[in-house]
Amino acid sequence: TTYYDVLGVKPNATQEELKKAYRKLALKYHPDKNPNEGEKFKQISQAYEVLSDAKKRELYDKGGE
Rank of each mutant, 00 (worst) to 15 (best):
K33R: 14
V6Y: 06
R23P: 00
S52R: 09
V6K: 04
G64M: 15
K33I: 15
K28A: 09
G38D: 08
T2L: 09
N34K: 06
P31Y: 05
A47R: 00
Y48F: 10
P11D: 06
L7D: 00
E37Q: 11
A13K: 00
D53C: 06
Q15F: 15
R23C: 15
V50G: 02
I44M: 04
P35D: 07
K55P: 05
T14S: 11
A47H: 01
E39Q: 09
K40H: 10
E17V: 05
K56I: 05
H30P: 04
Q46R: 10
A54F: 09
V50A: 05
V9Y: 00
E16Y: 09
Q43T: 09
S45G: 06
P31R: 06
Q46A: 10
D53Q: 04
Y4D: 00
I44F: 03
N12W: 14
F41V: 03
Y4I: 01
D32Q: 08
K24I: 13
A47V: 04
K19H: 13
P11Q: 09
Y48T: 00
P11L: 06
K20A: 15
A47M: 04
V6N: 03
I44T: 01
K55C: 13
L51M: 02
A13W: 01
I44K: 01
P35C: 07
N36L: 13
G38M: 15
K33Y: 14
Y60T: 03
E37S: 11
A47N: 00
K55F: 10
G63Y: 15
A26L: 15
H30F: 06
T2M: 06
L7G: 00
Y3K: 02
S52W: 04
A26R: 11
T2Q: 06
D5R: 06
F41N: 02
K42Q: 13
K24C: 13
G8M: 06
A54T: 11
E65Q: 12
E49R: 11
I44H: 01
E39K: 08
A26I: 12
E16F: 06
E17K: 04
G63N: 13
I44A: 04
T14H: 04
K24N: 11
K55E: 09
K56Y: 06
Q46V: 13
F41Y: 08
E17P: 00
P35L: 07
Y3S: 01
L27T: 09
D61E: 03
L7Y: 00
G8N: 07
R23Q: 15
S45M: 14
L18A: 01
Y22W: 08
L7H: 00
P35V: 07
D32E: 10
L7F: 02
T2P: 04
A47I: 06
I44V: 09
K10A: 13
D32S: 14
A26M: 15
H30L: 06
A54W: 09
A26E: 09
E16P: 05
D61F: 02
R57I: 02
N12V: 05
E39G: 09
K55G: 10
N36I: 09
V9E: 02
E58A: 10
L7Q: 00
P11T: 08
N36W: 11
R23F: 14
A13V: 10
Q46S: 06
K20F: 11
P31T: 07
A26Q: 09
K24M: 14
K24Q: 12
K19V: 14
E37M: 14
A26P: 00
E65F: 14
Y22T: 00
E49Y: 13
K56E: 06
P35M: 06
L7E: 00
K56C: 12
Y3W: 08
D32T: 12
Q43Y: 09
T2R: 05
S52H: 06
Y3A: 04
Y60F: 04
A21M: 04
S45L: 15
K24F: 12
L18R: 00
T2Y: 11
K55H: 12
L25M: 06
S45I: 14
E65I: 14
E65A: 14
K55R: 12
D61G: 03
H30I: 05
N12Y: 09
K42R: 15
